[in-house]
């Protein structure tokens, strides 16, 4: 059974046809990388999985997106509950202007959880999972905005893990980070794979090659090729993919 499935997704921003009939199936506990030049629709496609595109007034979407076999656009699904199962990490670290503790506890608090012990345990576990605990354990009351960019991004990952999603979407999670922080986040992704299904957008070919099991190449709103990562990088079926991964265009 597939964790995520997209069937013939057509997406429009007003008049602009942004995604042209994309179908894809993603297995559980894998890392899938979306690559392609800017504006090719990979972030837009990623945002279909947690219905983030709903926030844009002019956006219209056709087709089916199935998560654990349920169509999240058709069934009378509760979008808010659904988003709790699909975590998202954004391009720019975006911690709330609150303390480190409150950032991680936010997802629990909005569910009405006030049990202090439980909150503390979850915050610690999430920060440990995100490999941030040792760096911040004495400063949990401090503002999250005082952390470095790399720490902020790992905090955002911890915040996502705290609500125990089954899928994590990452939209260029390392593009604002330095190489050392990037290495930490990549290592983290590798570990998280055991528990979660991860889908990430990246502009960094080496990163896609390093961390992902499967890679999808997008170009001008179409899914050009989707295959095992080694195949995409060493022996792609399409010439466009070959040109892109070898840096001849894009």
């Amino acid at each position: 059974m597939y964790k995520l499935e997209a069937r013939d997704i057509q997406l429009y921003y007003g008049q602009k046809h942004a995604l042209k009939g994309i179908s894809m199936a993603i297995k559980p506990n894998t890392v899938t990388a979306f690559i392609g030049p800017s504006g090719c629709g990979k972030s837009t496609f990623l945002r279909c999985f947690n219905r983030m595109n709903d926030l844009i007034d002019t956006c219209r979407i056709e087709g089916e997106i199935l998560i654990d076999g349920r169509d999240i656009y058709k069934d009378r699904i509760n979008v808010v509950d659904h988003r709790k199962k699909i975590g998202m990490v954004f391009q720019k670290p975006n911690p709330f202007p609150k303390s480190i503790f409150e950032n991680v506890a936010y997802g629990l608090r909005i569910n009405g959880i006030t049990h202090k012990k439980f909150l503390e345990e979850t915050v610690e576990r999430s920060l440990r999972q995100a490999a941030l605990w040792d760096e911040v354990k004495d400063d949990l009351k401090k503002s999250a905005l005082a952390l470095s960019g790399g720490q902020q991004q790992r905090l955002c990952i911890a915040r996502t893990l705290a609500v125990e999603p089954s899928v994590i979407l990452m939209d260029e999670p390392c593009s604002a980070l330095d190489p050392i922080s990037t290495a930490k986040v990549e290592e983290l992704i590798h570990e998280l794979k055991n528990k979660y299904t991860i889908v990430m957008v990246t502009h960094n070919m080496q990163q896609a090659a390093r961390v992902s099991d499967r890679t999808a190449f997008f170009y001008l709103g179409e899914l050009i090729e989707y295959d095992d990562t080694p195949t995409i990088f060493t022996n792609p079926a399409k010439e466009a993919t070959q040109n892109y991964v070898t840096g001849r265009f894009g």
């Binding site: 983030m52 808010v80 988003r83 996502t160």
Partner: peptide, 17 residues
């Protein structure tokens, strides 16, 4: 900034929350 709203919505918060 909109990124804060997205972060909150992404965690499953309602618009009012």
């Amino acid at each position: 900034p909109n990124s804060l709203r997205e972060a909150s919505i992404g965690l499953g918060a309602t618009p009012w929350q």
